[in-house]
Amino acid sequence: MNRRVTLAAIVTVAAVIPLAACGQENTGNAASTKPTGKPTVCLVMKSLANEYFQQMQKGAVDHVAQLGNVTLDSSGTQNETDVDGQVALVEKCITKQVQAIVLAPADSKALVQSVAKAVKAGLKVVNIDVKLDDAALKQAGVDAPFVGPDNREGAKLSGLELAKALGKGAKVAILEGNPGADNALQRKNGFNDAVAQGGLQLLDSKTGHWETDEAHTVFGNMLTAHPDIQGVLASNDSMALGIIKVIEERKANIKVASFDNITAVKQYLQSGVMVSTLDQYGSQQAANGIDYALKMINGEQVTGWQKTPVKVITKDNVG
């Protein structure tokens, strides 16, 4: 997701390795209309070759199996930027006359036309993962609710745990994600909110490009320049791992607040060097979207941003 796109990459990707079969489909019960009377929901994803979406799809399939009152028709594109492929998938859903579409758009603007077409055809559309562009939606005269976590709020919650642990006036630094990535910006803003609200003193804020090694280098040098740092706000757990390595090397007493909750950080939550991380239940996002789609099929009005639950993970609940 945060891959540095090189010029060369653009040239060859498609030709070199067909990572995934085009327009993968996973229609356990290929029903288009409803022979059983159950509504059908189309789940249109991005690249299913990506572990993140793979998990999300699995969560949706499990969820639907549990519900039992809905048929799932899920598909994904060949790669994450395959806009044309995704437009075709949405149109296929319209043609099949399903009741609702849950969409993780490959592009926040380019998919708006397809969404408008679906809405006008009487389908319910729920937006997950990346929010469709508000201005473009407005221009097209449609509304599609966005179901997803609030990165900014999550980062703030995690950051406040650090403020609680260090106390007012403590000196902290932020390690940012890729400059230009929307979630990186949201998390940075959330951390800044926590700094302001918790009365922390921010010494430095730099990018580590989501990456362990670079975070190690950047934070190591930050610590040399500011030996009095007491806490770090890391925009993801991969970077937190590099930061913790520096802390161990220098035998410093520094606490870390982070984001993502990958299993590799569990030991550090337990040992106390990491005070908090944030679980935004990424694998549940598609399932959440399906829930909202069902609500809309049942006549409920859903608009705007439906925030999905996030959970601050600390020593107490890491398990």
Partner: peptide
């Protein structure tokens, strides 16, 4: 350049994207 993709994909496949 081809190997760049093959190796990256293989690494992702091998771990299921986990650290």
């Amino acid at each position: 350049l081809g190997m760049l993709y093959v190796a990256r994909g293989a690494a992702e496949q091998y771990t299921g994207a986990a650290t």
